[in-house]
């Protein structure tokens, strides 16, 4: 067995960005792993999106056409197993995404693959090696896959820069797989989340404000700033207590516990109860006038500054 196989993803006819990130990740180890770098796309739309996957460094694009219009875990699982059988890769990379989590572990179990998820770094030393977080990323765990001819890794999205999409110069090959009557779930519909109900625990980027905003009238400008920044607005307890913001927005012991990728705190001094709700954010940036504010003890980046002045400048910078 040899070579690296990337499992790309599409949703509703569009290639998902993580696919091209996986190509970048695969390129880093492809040479050491030996063999070819192939990218496979499974789905009804496989042939349409396939050519984009022929990025630099990709030897071949594989398409597996599924009878279902949308992702179906059992069909994808079967398709992946067909790909393993036909391509015999030594390393398979998939995205650590909702879809992949729906079928990759089952394949790993059934085929006794080397397996790890949410991988943040991949290397090759006489076989693949992977790094992944442990205990909420407070530690890094290094893994090897002894005795495994094939290893399946799901890679955390957003860590590798996406490869430039191909323009059709890489050969595309259709891989046959019998996928009829494999589905075991029935798709009913897609529902878009309603804008009104905010779940700050699910937000990737929170702009959080605290007592430092001083007045209820200052809140709308931070709402606008958050919107421009692509962030969700959250608050600390005093603003909820004051009745300025609904409690659904509250971060902290008596509010929500959040773990966004970025937590940008304005005017939050960081009471223990508040810190308990956000200290596990991947990146914490705090702006506060008080250099002794406890929030700086958990922040990764801090600025002792007037939050309104910084907000002014941010508005400028974001245009």
């Amino acid at each position: 067995m040899s070579g690296v196989l990337v499992i790309a993803e599409s949703r509703r006819g569009e290639l998902r960005e993580v696919s091209l990130e996986l190509v970048t990740a695969a390129r880093e180890v492809a040479e050491a792993a030996g063999g070819q770098l192939k990218v496979a796309i499974i789905g009804a739309d496989a042939e349409q999106v396939g050519p984009q996957l022929g990025a630099e460094g990709v030897d071949e694009v594989l398409t597996v056409t599924a009878p279902q219009q949308h992702f179906e875990a059992h069909v994808w699982q079967k398709a992946l197993e067909a790909l393993i059988d036909s391509e015999q890769p030594s390393l398979i990379l998939a995205g650590h995404t909702i879809d992949s989590l729906g079928f990759a572990p089952a394949t790993a179990a059934r085929r006794a693959l080397g397996f790890a998820t949410d991988v943040t770094a991949i290397s090759w030393a006489d076989g693949p090696r992977a790094v992944r977080g442990a205990y909420g990323d407070k530690l890094h765990s290094e893994l090897e896959f002894p005795g495994k001819e094939c290893t399946l890794l799901t890679v955390r999205p957003g860590l590798f820069s996406p490869a430039t999409p191909g323009e059709g110069s890489v050969p595309v090959r259709a891989v046959e797989a019998n996928l009829e009557n494999v589905a075991r779930t029935e798709h009913i519909e897609f529902v878009e989340a309603t804008a009104g109900d905010v779940d700050i625990t699910k937000a990737e980027f929170l702009l959080s404000i605290g007592r430092g905003v001083e007045d209820k009238d200052n809140i709308p400008r931070f709402e606008q700033l958050a919107e421009r920044f692509g962030a969700t607005l959250s608050v600390s307890r005093p603003l909820v207590d004051a009745g300025w913001m609904p409690s659904a927005r509250q971060v902290g012991q008596s509010g929500k516990t959040v773990k966004p990728r970025v937590y940008l705190a304005f005017g939050i001094s960081g009471a223990v109860q508040h810190l308990a709700g956000m200290r596990n954010a991947d990146t914490i940036i705090a702006v506060n006038t008080d250099p002794e504010a406890p929030i700086f003890s958990v922040a990764h980046y801090g600025a002792v500054a007037d939050l309104f002045e910084v907000a002014d400048e941010l508005e400028q910078a974001l245009g």
Binding site: V240, D241, G243, M245, P246, S247, Q250, S254, G255
Partner: peptide, 11 residues
């Protein structure tokens, strides 16, 4: 102390 107050009410 651990139950959020109703917003807008005097504490």
């Amino acid at each position: 102390i651990w139950i959020p107050d109703t917003p807008g009410q005097e504490r």
